[in-house]
Design a protein around this nucleic acid. Structure first.
Lengths: 115, 115
DNA sequence: GCCGAGTGCTTGCATTTGCAAGCAGGCGAA
DNA sequence: TTCGCCTGCTTGCAAATGCAAGCACTCGGC
């Protein structure tokens, strides 16, 4: 599975579903229309910045496009729970340490159950 | 705030915290060491693929680096925290619900403090 | 038929990304 | 002192990205 051909197909599919032309989407996203055409046909591999612009213009999340492009794993959020909590800007340091302590406690509990 | 200078600072910080040299990290990530040096100094703007490689070598999530690089919005991180907890295979359902309840409580507390 | 407006795509080029080869320096051992 | 190994960085270059100018086509109106 060629990921970047896949993202091109996905973008074309979304564009056609939205019933807009290559030129219209390109203009809305702020990229050149030949380049968008090349992306859709898998001839070029757009940067994450371009994917971000296209996501916004297509009203889909950037994450969706990144996953399609192989730039994010659907597994990755699962692996780094502790880090995600630590980086959450909505939480203060005390709250983070409380969540992390509880999380660690659960891990220890689960590990001792498995032993 | 120049986002890509910021990602360079962040990568250097993580590398130094891990006590590895530019060459060691570059090798671990599979990128050239001069290029890594340029990234750290903000002279080059790495692609998402390179950020993905560096994230893995630094044991941080790709999302963390993407947010730092402006490729993902922090609003998405907030969604990811809840989702990350819900998807963590190390936790059972009860544990998940406890963490999510605590997390929600903190969000409500923080939102009412701001209002 | 011609024209204008639209369509997706071709092509050449400027700029950027990432690399390989190498430089300059520090440090410890002989 | 020299040597070997390590360090971060410089530099020139190949390949990739993204664009502007333009082509060929379709369609509807006159």
């Amino acid at each position: 599975m060629d990921t970047f051909a896949s993202i091109g197909d996905f973008i074309r599919e979304k564009r056609e579903a939205a019933e807009v032309s290559v030129r219209q989407l390109a203009k809305a996203a702020g990229v050149s229309n030949p380049y968008l055409s090349q992306i859709e046909r898998g001839l070029r591999k757009p940067s994450a910045e371009v994917l971000q612009l296209l996501a916004k213009a297509l009203s889909v999340s950037a994450e969706t496009l990144y996953v399609r492009a192989g730039l994010l794993d659907e597994d990755s959020s699962r692996k780094f729970t502790a880090e995600t909590i630590a980086n959450d800007p909505e939480l203060n340091d005390f709250q983070k340490s409380q969540l992390l302590a509880l999380y660690s406690e659960f891990l220890i509990t689960n590990n001792s159950k498995e032993s």
